[in-house]
Design a binder for these strands. Sequence first.
DNA 1: AGGAGCTTGTGAACGTGAGAACAAAATCGG
DNA 2: CCGATTTTGTTCTCACGTTCACAAGCTCCT
Lengths: 251, 251
Amino acid sequence: MTRASSRRPGPPTRTERGIPEATVARLPVYLRALTALSDSGIATASSEDLATAAGVNSAKLRKDLSYLGSYGTRGVGYDVEYLRYQIAREIGVTQDWAVVIVGIGNLGHALANYSGFGTRGFRIVALLDADPNLVGERIGDMEVRDFAQLEEIVEADRVSIGVITTPAGPAQDVCDRLVAAGVTSILNFAPVVLSVPDGVDIRKVDLSIELQILAYHEQRKSGEAALPQVPELPAMNGLPDLPSVGGGVGA
Amino acid sequence: MTRASSRRPGPPTRTERGIPEATVARLPVYLRALTALSDSGIATASSEDLATAAGVNSAKLRKDLSYLGSYGTRGVGYDVEYLRYQIAREIGVTQDWAVVIVGIGNLGHALANYSGFGTRGFRIVALLDADPNLVGERIGDMEVRDFAQLEEIVEADRVSIGVITTPAGPAQDVCDRLVAAGVTSILNFAPVVLSVPDGVDIRKVDLSIELQILAYHEQRKSGEAALPQVPELPAMNGLPDLPSVGGGVGA
DNA sequence: AGGAGCTTGTGAACGTGAGAACAAAATCGG
DNA sequence: CCGATTTTGTTCTCACGTTCACAAGCTCCT
């Protein structure tokens, strides 16, 4: 984000680091598309082909790839295997990342069971929960362990990524413990805004928010000519019943 | 997205539609923050308070809210209940949206079980799966029904939102059926890029992609001075083993 | 060998979003 | 009633992201 290019002019063999965040978010999509093409036995693909498979426009795809380097051949396209490896390496999934999942409720269960999860690039090393009733339960080939063991697990297995699937309540505490234990990347499914110190990356997945965004657009479609234009609230008292919006996939 | 403001000048009692997408994505966060404040018995909050609770900066929050109208009081702040209702109405969660979930694997199970899901604004009206072994299973107070019944359910219950939690394979087919049945908003958990006609909104949630984005940043942290600068691929043959990156929370 | 035909990589224009900064409006104390 | 204080709503500027358009470069055919 900081370092800019300050080199001699000439053929930029590889872009000096500093890939735009928007591009980073699309690289995994390209990677998946390339994997699909590879599985279909396709050896070469043009930016147009790739863009179609990834659901973006081809100019954007070319620009994105240009941040990684010049991995294509003009007049020909990209070698699928070669590009796939380059992107995988750039993302960092050529190595395995140790992951812990904290909070083995419905969602934690689902993620733990999901076999495709750990297959490539990521390895679930522990399922943790503070509830004694859950500790010891077997899920697939793993056993739920006590959250108290977090620190030793993180250290022993070099865990750098934590997934929080607890309810909203304990999420910040869990987050703090993860950070204190040395985890520097967190994927949060709890419906709260977590605060973390600098140097720790956090990403959030929130079903409830996604649905609400859809609802907004849906409302505008239906109401295009239907609704009598947003009804103004009569007064400050007697608000319509709106008990408690704001859930999420916490447990 | 289209209509611009073309009214008399003067006090813009309410912004003519056209809320930026980035703002729309934050409104649910504000809504949740307001609900939390409300539950804490707080009646009034400044933009600074709200911004802290929502994890954004206060200038951005004020600008976001200004798209909805002037719902604050200078020198005072925002009335929590009032603002909450205005945002809820703007998003469209003052009414209930009927939702179907298609694909009752691990994740579908988790979502179906998740009680907070359907509480406000959204009502799960059916759990569907094509697998005869699953049809009839009870989950909470609902029963899994045959995917073949999709069309009649959508029509009977005015379903406008569909959630796809199938594996990648059948996802596009399921999507097409949903669209054909009249669903105009889709939340996709399958690890594929779905294509839909104009007029249909689609959002995607992908665990695998989120993890890969974290991995990218994690790699850059560790490798800040460690790794001997990206190892160049020796030749076109003999790529390191990279079997099949690109999973997702499909089933 | 040379030209025709593709396809990449990138410079430049455009649009959207973020943040700083300030004027306008409301309350409160004297 | 007036000035001090607070906080909103908005304007302006800058950074980021997207798209267009085209020169550079590669392959293939004649």
